[in-house]
């Protein structure tokens, strides 16, 4: 990476990440098609909701006929991290217009966030609308096309469960968790591991008496509170 922040550099910086989007997008398309979503609905979900991992949750909740509001709450919780990422990125665009701010925010993803946080280490903590917007747009169109192609390919597969593709979601959670732990330098590694273990225990116990969707909310908030308490007591 260099300190350049023009569109051409943004394309060069972003290309290595598109393979990740293609893989998950294909998996999302195949899985969604296999449980009964049409190709059009798959593409619309990727284009309108554009929520990455949360789209897998939407599909699984649609299949079990959850109320729309429950699905919206679940998606909000899974994407609550977006609030955090936007909160971190927003100060870089304080001088840009409100419209440009909203446009950057609307297409912000885990990967463009992670990439930009890496990039500012090379640019003396400067960021440009052109660079970030290019990274965002490449991610957006790659995701949309990959999920559509996945849905089309899914029609050719007779027994999708044999391919194990339903594990793509769980594998991505594992991957994002691992990558988060090794990339986040603001929290001590030992603290993160303790919080992860505490969260696993909270979820296991919660499974006994808290219904699934509510458990994700309650469990996550309890885990965050536990993290804050441990951090203040021992770190």
């Amino acid at each position: 990476m260099t300190d350049e922040l023009d569109i051409k550099t943004a394309i060069k910086d972003t290309l290595p990440t598109v393979f990740g989007y293609i893989g998950i997008g294909l998996a999302f398309g195949v899985v969604s098609q296999s449980v009964g979503l049409s190709v059009l609905m798959v593409v619309l979900m990727s284009a309108i909701t554009y929520a990455g991992s949360a789209q897998f949750i939407m599909v699984s909740m649609l299949v079990s006929h959850n109320p729309v509001v429950s699905i919206m709450v679940a998606v909000f919780l899974v994407n609550a991290r977006m609030i955090l990422m936007s909160t971190v990125v927003a100060p870089y665009f304080k001088k840009d217009s409100m419209l440009k701010n909203i446009f950057i925010g609307a297409l912000l993803t885990d990967e463009s966030f992670a990439l930009s946080m890496n990039k500012v280490n090379y640019t003396d903590h400067k960021m440009s609308f052109e660079w970030f917007n290019t990274a965002n747009l490449i991610a957006y169109f790659t995701w949309m096309i990959a999920s559509g192609v996945g849905a089309l390919l899914g029609q050719l597969v007779a027994h999708p469960e044999r391919l194990g593709l339903d594990f793509a979601l769980v594998a991505m959670f594992i991957g994002l968790l691992y990558l988060q732990v090794i990339a986040d330098r603001s929290l001590a590694k030992s603290l993160q591991l303790i919080v992860i273990l505490a969260e696993a225990v909270i979820i296991y116990l919660g499974l006994i008496f808290i219904p699934g969707n509510l458990l994700l909310v309650v469990g996550t908030l309890l885990g965050c509170a536990t993290g804050v308490v441990i951090k203040h007591a021992f770190y």
Binding site: A80, L84, L169, L177, Q192, L207, G223, C224, K231
Partner: peptide, 20 residues
Amino acid sequence: ELLSFVPITIMTALWVTNLF
């Protein structure tokens, strides 16, 4: 500070609920 724990707790929660 509370939000800083969301990425790891939500991912752990989603993973663990899939193990049971």
